[in-house]
């Protein structure tokens, strides 16, 4: 197995379902942060079989709303002095701004460049969100 040194200070996003790590990496713009980042893919996991892990050094302000939408298995650990000092809960957000687009092709958010899509949670189990503007339901489906 490839060895990756533990980080001294920063964030470890663990238990990402295998295959979603790169997608999260891109969605959270981690390449643009200017901090050292490692993305580990297909790491053996007791819980998931295989998982992805992202480690970000010297940075702790990760968008947990986005992670909550992606999967309940994800854990976010804040590291200081090589120790986990905080586990940030990841939950399905009540309100989501700008992370996905409205599924209604007639919705104004799909044609107006200025407006940022805004959604309110309708049903947590099916990840169904109601659009603030057209009031149609969009089910969040990744991949």
């Amino acid at each position: 197995m490839i060895e990756v040194a533990a980080i001294k200070k920063g964030t470890v996003i663990d238990h990402i379902a295998a295959g979603q790590g790169l997608w999260i990496f891109n969605k959270l713009n981690l390449g643009q942060l200017g901090h050292p980042v490692v993305l580990l893919m297909n790491v053996p996991s007791k819980r998931l079989g295989k998982k992805d892990i992202i480690k970000i050094e010297n940075y702790t302000d990760v968008d947990t709303a986005m992670l909550g939408l992606i999967g309940s298995s994800i854990t976010v650990n804040i590291i200081e002095n090589e120790h986990v000092v905080d586990k940030v809960p990841v939950f399905i957000p009540d309100e989501v701004r700008g992370l996905f687009s409205c599924g209604n092709p007639r919705c104004v958010t799909n044609s107006d460049a200025y407006v940022i899509p805004l959604f309110h949670l309708h049903d947590a189990r099916s990840l169904a969100y109601v659009c603030e503007y057209c009031e149609e339901i969009t089910k969040v489906a990744w991949k």
Partner: peptide
């Protein structure tokens, strides 16, 4: 407006 939600915006 033909787009749904445009007046709200």
């Amino acid at each position: 407006h033909p787009k749904e939600g445009a007046p709200k915006l």
